[in-house]
């Protein structure tokens, strides 16, 4: 379902060429829970960006849902990000000026879903992560754990093929981190494919 084929990523830093990825290949099946680990500077982020269709490989192919995205233009990539990938960031990355509900609605807006249906779907997603009573709040009015749950709801709302989580517990204390991980386990049991970058070996196991 998701295939990385001999992917190379080379950055041109002035006159120096930096090889962030040197021909990575792997395959992830539907319903897998995969952890990507490694020291900083090992190219985790670069790999995540390519899997997340935020960036394209210099060489090699990346296939998601049977579609090779390595040569697509900006607009096609935006569509793939919108419909097939759900992002969960370390920094939560919620828009601080709008309500939690609106934050969760954003992917639906870009998918062209009508306002009424949008609200319904966003509410359902928030309920599934236990935030039904926080829909009207702004991001700065809720706790870090709640923010990350809202971000997960946002990643889920368009029913993506994969959920891509980049150190989702990195900005949380141990206890809330555990709660967030439990949500990911639950999502995995429901049949979601999850790729997570993490430092914690325990989660990876």
């Amino acid at each position: 379902m998701l295939e990385v084929k001999k992917v190379k990523k080379i950055y041109q830093m002035g006159k120096v060429k930096v090889e962030a990825l040197r021909g990575v290949s792997f395959y992830i099946d539907k319903g897998e829970f995969v952890a990507i680990m490694g020291p900083s500077g090992s190219g985790k982020s670069t790999l995540m960006h390519i899997i997340g269709c935020l960036d394209q490989p210099t060489e090699g192919n990346f296939i998601i849902g049977g579609k090779d995205v390595s040569k697509l233009n900006d607009d096609r990539l935006a569509e793939i990000r919108n419909k097939r990938i759900g992002f969960v960031f370390q920094q939560f990355n919620l828009l601080s000026r709008t309500s939690i509900l609106h934050n969760v609605e954003i992917p639906l807006i870009y998918a062209g879903v009508k306002a009424k249906q949008r609200r319904e779907l966003a509410k359902q997603a928030l309920e599934s992560v236990g935030l039904a009573d926080r829909v009207k709040h702004k991001p700065n009015e809720i706790s870090g754990g709640e923010k990350q749950r809202a971000a997960i709801a946002r990643a889920l709302v368009n029913k993506p093929l994969i959920i891509l989580a980049d150190e989702p517990t990195g900005n949380l204390d141990t206890k809330t981190g555990e709660e967030i991980i439990k949500i990911f386990y639950k999502l995995h049991r429901q049949g979601n494919t999850i790729i997570m970058v993490t430092h914690e070996a325990e989660i990876a196991r």
């Binding site: 997340g52 935020l54 900006d74 607009d75 935006a78 569509e79 990000r81 919108n82 419909k83 992002f87 990355n93 919620l94 828009l95 954003i106 992917p107 870009y110 998918a111 946002r154 368009n158």
Partner: peptide, 16 residues
């Protein structure tokens, strides 16, 4: 800038 990045990650096209 960050908001633009978030919106793009969530599927905003350039024209959006």
């Amino acid at each position: 800038t960050r908001e633009i990045g978030i919106r793009k990650a969530l599927g905003a096209k350039n024209k959006n």
